[in-house]
Design a protein around this nucleic acid. Sequence first.
DNA 1: CCGATACAGGCATATTCACGCAATAACAAG
DNA 2: CTTGTTATTGCGTGAATATGCCTGTATCGG
Lengths: 261, 261
Amino acid sequence: MHTLGDAMLTEQRKQHILEVLRRDGRVVAKPLAMSLALSEDTIRRDLRELAREGLLQRVHGGALPASRAMGNLSVRRSVSTAEKVAIGRAAAAMIRPGQVVFVDGGTTAVQLARALDPRLGATIVTHSPSVAVELIDHAAEVILIGGRLFKHSMVTVGAAALEAIGRIRADAYFMGVTGIHPEIGLTTGDAEEAAIKRAMVAAAAETIVLGSPEKLGAASPFLVVPASEMAVLLTTDAVPLEQLAAYERLGAAVVQVRVAS
Amino acid sequence: MHTLGDAMLTEQRKQHILEVLRRDGRVVAKPLAMSLALSEDTIRRDLRELAREGLLQRVHGGALPASRAMGNLSVRRSVSTAEKVAIGRAAAAMIRPGQVVFVDGGTTAVQLARALDPRLGATIVTHSPSVAVELIDHAAEVILIGGRLFKHSMVTVGAAALEAIGRIRADAYFMGVTGIHPEIGLTTGDAEEAAIKRAMVAAAAETIVLGSPEKLGAASPFLVVPASEMAVLLTTDAVPLEQLAAYERLGAAVVQVRVAS
DNA sequence: CCGATACAGGCATATTCACGCAATAACAAG
DNA sequence: CTTGTTATTGCGTGAATATGCCTGTATCGG
C-alpha cells in the first residue's frame, strides 16, 4: 500500500499518476493532489510534462490515456469481468515448459498472456499484437503471425496469416469465440477470422476453448468448427452442470474455474 | 542488524544501497546519508556511479530501480522526449492519402502512429506490434509483418519477416536507428534488426530517418545502410546547421522540426 | 451571458545537484 | 621508515530542479 507518510520522489509520483491512469482510465487533478498532499499546481505540472512526453492526453480537469489504443485497453480491462480473468489464469496454468501453443486474440486471451508465468520457457504463437505486447517482459519466445490487421478484433487475418499458421505445428490452441453451441458449433462474427481460427485448430494437437459463461448456448454468423473439435472447454462455476453435459457427450473435457468474488 | 558502529567499505555501501532499493523500490539520498553517517555528496556519487553501470535509475532526490522490476510499464520509461514527439508528429504529416509506407519499431515510431490523422486513408506496414496497437482506431489499413518477436526492440525479425517485406513495394520507409553518422552510416544494435531494416530500405522508394538529436554523430555495432541511402533526415532545431551539412552533401534532405518548449 | 473552476506563466524559496578543490586515508615501492 | 601515488571523502560554489503562491486568462456548466 502507498502510505502517505513519506514524500514521494517526483519521478515516482509521475509513475503513480500513470498507474492510476491505467487502472481507472482517467485521472482528475484535484482529488489526486489531495490524496498526495500536494498542490494542484504540482499535479498539473506533472500532467503537462507527461503529456509532452506523449504518455497521456491532457484534458480539462485531468488527463486521459495517451491514445485510444491504450484507452480501449484500460476500458476493456475494466470491462473484462472477473470471469475472464479467472479463465485466463486457468488457461495460463495449462501451458507447460517447452510447449508451443497458439493463443487467439480477444480480451480473454490478453488475460491469459497477463497471467502467464514470466519465467515460463514456452513458445507462444499469436496473431494478436495485443497479446504480443503483453508478453514483452516474459521469458517465453513469441512468434507473431503477420497479415492484414482486422481492426475490430485486433488480430491479423488474410492469406499471409493463413499460410504462416500452416507452417506451424502446435501442442495446443487457446481459442476465443463469440458463440459456443452443442449442435451449431463454435462460431464467430467474421468470416476471415473464422478461417484463421479454423487453420489454428487444424495446426494444433488440441483445441482449448476459452468460454466465458455468456458465450455458452450462443451462436454467431460464421462457423469455425463443430463443437466436437473442442478438446477442453474452460468455463466458470456459474454455469449449470446439465448445460455442460452436452459438451462432454461430444468428447470435450469441461473445466470449471472458480471465480473469486 | 545494520549497526552503524564501523564504517562501511565503499563497495559494501553500494551493495547496501542496491539492497535498500530492492526492498523499498526507491532510495532517497538525504535520509540514506543520515543513516550511514556520511555526506550526501558521497551518496550522490555512489548513485551516479551505480546509474552509469545501469544498476539503477537516477532521479532527482534519489534513485529508482533500473528495470521494470516493479512497474510493469515496459515501453513507457523508454524516455520518450518532447523531441521524439515532435519528430513523430512531423513524420506523420508527411504521409499522403493512398500511400503505402513502412513504419519501423521504436519509441519515435510509436509517436508517429499516435500523431497520425485518424481518418487518413493510407496503408501502414509495420513489424512492430506496438505501432499496430496504436493504429486500432485509425482508418488506415494496417499490415503487420510477422515473425519471431525480438523482445528488446519489440519488433519481429527472422526469415519470415524478411520474406514478407520482400513481397511489398512501399512509397516510403520511416526508419528509426540508434546511430547516424555521415561516414559510418546508419547503424543499430542488433544484426537481425539491421537485416530487417535493410530489407525495408530496399523495398521502399525512399527512406526517411527519424533522427532525434542524440543519434546524430553516434554509431552502433551493426550497419544498416550507408548514410547516402537516406532521402530525408528528420531532426530537431537543436542540432547545429554545420553538423547537418554533411548529410546534405550526401544527398539527404534535412528537415528540422521545431520542438515546442 | 455569468459565476465557478481550471489553467499557464511568472516569481520566490528551498532542495538537490555536479564540479572542483583540498584534506585524509590506504597503499605500494624503494 | 619514508615517499609518492591513488582512492575516498567532505566542503564550497553556482547551477538546476521542485514546489507553492499569485495573477491574469481560458474553459466549463448552466
